Amino acid sequence: MSAWLKDETTLHTGAAPHHGVGLFALLRDQPGSQAAQVTAAGAAWLAGATPYPRSTLAQWEERPTAPGVLPCGTAFDVVNVPALFGRRMLERLWAEGPGSGPVATHRGRMLLFAAPGTAQRLPSLLSWEEWGTDGSGGVGGAGEERGTMPPLLCHGTGDAVTVPPLTCTSSDGGPRWLVAPDTRTPWLPGPDMLLWACVRVSRTPLPRAGAQTIFPPADQGANVYDVTRRR
């Protein structure tokens, strides 16, 4: 299986297996590097979250445009946030922090892949920071005004999440990758880093209209992340 797993290969938009050519042969043979496209090594990492990675890869080869369902808690946890709040978190992580791990969108929410254990630890850290779990804001100590913290859903051991298809078919409004997995061991933020991003966003006013952003308009599929910047 490892013969075709190259970090630098990607699935290009609209790619599909040709007659007699397997999906992962295309992953191997088509060079490129785009943040929103899954690499062959990234696909192997995703499949490794399941008890039977070979079977998972075989299913994806048969249906490369279908979303999948993967368990959390072993290879990754997932922090599930409202889309706008998640976009602002990514702005912070990429502009002022170390970048992010894989990130996907699904049903108006953003899925931030995080280090295992984050789902258990992050809610405790937020409570320690005195952010209520009901999303209410308030005024902090020393006269510091606080914004609102929307409900965060943390998926860990015993949970499962829907992941976008390997091929980039995001124009239909279904799940899609913003930052796709690209290596066998992608960097994943831990609870401390995600706490930092949550608190910074909640304490920062919404950006003014016309302000610069790393995100393209919603109807564009441009790649806006330089994954080589991950620290």
Rank of each mutant, 00 (worst) to 15 (best):
E144F: 10
E145Q: 15
E145M: 13
R146T: 06
G147K: 07
G147N: 07
G147L: 09
T148E: 14
T148G: 13
T148Y: 13
M149E: 02
M149S: 02
M149K: 03
P150G: 05
P150I: 05
P150A: 07
P151V: 15
P151W: 06
P151H: 12
L153A: 15
L153R: 13
C154R: 03
C154D: 08
H155L: 15
H155E: 14
G156D: 01
T157C: 13
T157K: 13
T157Q: 15
T157H: 15
D159G: 08
A160C: 11
A160Q: 12
V161I: 14
T162F: 04
T162Y: 02
V163D: 00
V163S: 02
P164V: 01
P164H: 04
P165E: 01
P165S: 14
L166S: 00
T167N: 08
T167I: 12
C168F: 12
T169I: 11
S170E: 12
S170G: 11
S171I: 06
S171V: 07
S171Q: 09
D172Q: 09
D172V: 09
D172E: 14
G173H: 10
G173V: 04
P175C: 05
P175W: 03
P175S: 11
P175L: 05
R176F: 14
R176V: 06
W177L: 03
W177G: 01
L178T: 00
L178C: 06
L178N: 03
L178G: 01
L178Y: 04
L178A: 04
V179H: 04
A180T: 01
P181Q: 10
P181R: 00
P181S: 07
D182G: 09
D182F: 09
D182N: 13
T183S: 14
T183E: 06
T183V: 04
T183R: 05
T183H: 04
T183C: 08
T183K: 02
R184H: 12
T185I: 09
T185S: 11
T185D: 14
T185Q: 13
P186W: 03
W187Q: 10
W187V: 06
W187M: 10
L188K: 03
P189W: 04
G190T: 01
P191F: 09
M193W: 10
M193C: 12
M193G: 07
L194Y: 04
L194G: 03
L195Q: 05
L195F: 14
W196E: 14
W196I: 07
